[in-house]
Computed example of a mutant assay.
Amino acid sequence: MPERPAVHLAVPVDDLPAARAFYGGVLGLAEGRSSDHWVDWSLHGHQLVTHVIPGTVRPAGESEVDSHEVPIPHFGLLLSTPEFHALADRLRAAGTAFLIEPYLRFPGAPGEQWTMFFRDPAGNALEFKAFRDESQVFAR
């Protein structure tokens, strides 16, 4: 178990082999327990579970942040800056289409961060980000 509290997140997918290829292959997450209709993943020590639910994930909407339309809902993770750029390179190499290309948000301001958005094969929106100074995650 991580030294800090861990998060549990369950998301719908419509194709378990595609989810395995994306979460295990593209994102490089370690697979845990599974059945014929769900898979546990280690999202940097947090539990992400992909559950097969027939149908398409429908986004609720978008919210403007820093002149970009951010998909709602979404989930993701805070990474170090080197981890962020390594993941961005990995996603590009896999041909992942970005909803919002990796870029530096709020440069020079409290909360300066690298961010990127993309969807998994089921349509779930993901955001990964890296703060220049992790102590600024909740800065105002």
Rank of each mutant, 00 (worst) to 15 (best):
Q136V: 03
V39H: 11
D14S: 12
P17Y: 01
H68L: 14
I72W: 10
P71M: 11
H51V: 10
R92F: 07
L91F: 12
F84Q: 09
L27G: 06
F118C: 00
L48S: 00
L9N: 02
I100Y: 02
A94N: 03
P54G: 11
P102Q: 07
R119D: 07
E112G: 01
A60V: 05
P12W: 05
A122T: 00
G25I: 11
A93R: 13
V57P: 07
A97Q: 11
A125N: 01
I100A: 05
G123N: 02
V70E: 04
G25H: 08
P82G: 08
T56E: 15
M1Y: 06
H44T: 04
N124A: 04
A93H: 09
N124S: 04
D89Q: 13
Q113R: 11
D36W: 07
L104P: 06
E3N: 09
W114H: 12
E101L: 10
M116C: 13
V7F: 14
F106W: 13
D15N: 14
G28V: 06
H46T: 08
H85Y: 12
R4K: 12
V70L: 15
F117Q: 01
T50F: 02
R92H: 09
D36G: 11
L91W: 09
G28Q: 07
L16P: 02
A19M: 05
F84W: 09
A125Y: 01
H51D: 12
Q113D: 00
D120Y: 10
D89A: 15
M1D: 10
V7W: 10
P107M: 07
L27K: 03
E134R: 05
Q47Y: 03
G32A: 14
A93E: 14
